[in-house]
Design a protein around this nucleic acid. Structure first.
Ligand SMILES: NC(=O)c1ccc[n+]([C@@H]2O[C@H](COP(=O)([O-])OP(=O)(O)OC[C@H]3O[C@@H](n4cnc5c(N)ncnc54)[C@H](O)[C@@H]3O)[C@@H](O)[C@H]2O)c1
Ligand SMILES: NC(=O)c1ccc[n+]([C@@H]2O[C@H](COP(=O)([O-])OP(=O)(O)OC[C@H]3O[C@@H](n4cnc5c(N)ncnc54)[C@H](O)[C@@H]3O)[C@@H](O)[C@H]2O)c1
Lengths: 207, 207
DNA sequence: AAGATTTTGTTAATTATTTAACAGTGTTAA
DNA sequence: TTAACACTGTTAAATAATTAACAAAATCTT
């Protein structure tokens, strides 16, 4: 298995989530077209993705749900788990921390950072909030590999640089400000405003 | 100008945001490579996108910032503006409402919906919260075209259906549950968990 | 047991998107 | 006034992602 396309990785994550739900219901096998139906994509795409990770289902019975869940896990998870931090504990940051603190997965949010003295030392959803000046130290101490940026956009570029310096290996930037990272750091940016404007554009043109 | 690629639309939104910043600083012209630098993409891509919308800069001076902002506006905005609603005023929904209420654009959030009786009738960031049962009526009364879904994922499918019935033309689904809409409704889905798992995958493999 | 049916796995074709290449043209400098 | 330069606009090539096509095989039907 050489290079999995980005889009395939994203779908594998979704397949797994859907499969876990099916598994919980006691289902043991599933067809490509069933998975496709759940995610509203085509069965071919499902089969192709599954082919790419080298799994083979059984003809006429489909894919073994448990096996496929495990295989996807071996591909996208890190065995030891990965520690994550949230930088900027405002409305969005708090929502994210709260949301992820509920679920047990291989990804755990283990620290937050802010500059607001009212927040430092407190906890949000059980996760401690540190001062941004302690970032480097805490990142090292807690072996944090991923940073989720939810700071005001004016701070985005500086914070990204700080994260890179601290040795972070992946950044999820929810700021509408594009940031720059060296190529050994993986960057994913999501811009909500743009997303909404895109919807608005198609609403406008589609009638 | 025929069909603009989705990706181009998304970038136009970002160009405009960057251009507005430059404009505010008193800059009048900008080169493709300057825009590219800000967004960390290539100058060719910028030029190509701008070509697609039929704008032409002046040689050696670049693009007129004000003109380009206006043209992008004419393309992606609706003249009259578009009304938006948020369904599910929890942590994420509240963050979104608060965030967008600050900015004046052609897109305004004009109503929220929930089922929690403690929330109904109250306001969040100045926007009234209605009961989900009044959705159809309010959508019509307030001429709402877009719905942002931030309800628990178990509710996602039902709510999407409800929105479609009510005559919504665009849905932004922040639930990790894929939903189904007729093809005259534009659907954009963003799954934060998947996004984070994708970052984790590349962090894992990239060393 | 023969034939129809269903479903996978895989290669090939298609479509979408990005990147490269380069002609054309004001502007600056010699 | 001519040559070098620094841009844009556009076409062509390359890359990425999706979709179609179909052979192979397990199961079902009669
Ligand atoms: N809230 C949303 O729904 C939403 C939507 C789209 C984009 N965003 C983006 O997400 C970011 C955060 O949005 P928000 O609504 O949570 O804002 P917010 O103001 O509620 O939160 C920002 C937080 O960052 C902290 N902060 C400021 N400077 C910091 C620094 N140098 N280091 C660490 N922390 C710092 C602030 O103290 C605050 O707690 C913004 O960039 C915004 O554009 C938010
Ligand atoms: N918080 C995050 O950062 C985050 C991240 C990723 C995904 N999400 C997704 O966003 C959604 C909301 O997350 P949250 O953290 O804000 O959850 P939340 O529980 O804080 O909010 C959900 C809200 O929806 C309301 N609600 C429930 N049923 C409803 C119905 N039928 N109609 C209208 N409103 C209803 C609830 O009363 C509540 O106010 C979830 O699907 C979650 O998976 C959230």
């Amino acid at each position: 298995m050489k290079h999995l396309p980005h889009k395939t990785i994203a779908r594998l994550s979704q397949y797994r989530r859907a499969l876990l739900l099916c598994h919980a219901k006691g289902k043991t096998h599933i067809f490509s077209h069933e998975i496709a139906k759940i995610l509203h994509i085509t069965a071919v795409q499902v089969r192709r993705d599954i082919m790419l990770i080298g799994y083979t289902g059984t003809l006429r019975k489909g894919y073994n749900i448990k096996d496929l869940i495990d295989l996807i896990g071996r591909i996208i998870d890190s065995e030891e788990g990965i520690n994550v931090s949230v930088i900027g504990v405002g409305n969005l940051g708090r929502a994210i921390v709260n949301y992820f603190s509920g679920r047990r997965t291989k990804l755990s949010i283990v620290a937050c950072f802010d500059v607001d003295s009212n927040k430092i030392g407190k906890k949000t959803s059980g996760i401690e909030i540190f001062h941004i000046d302690d970032l480097q130290r805490i990142i090292e101490e807690k072996n944090i590999k991923i940073g989720i940026m939810t700071v005001p956009s004016e701070q985005a570029i500086d914070i990204a640089e700080l994260l890179v310096k601290a040795g972070i290996k992946g950044i999820l930037n929810y700021t509408p400000k594009p940031v720059n990272v060296p190529k050994d750091v993986f960057l994913e940016e999501y811009d909500m405003i743009t997303s909404l404007e895109k919807v608005a554009f198609f609403v406008k043109t589609h009638d």
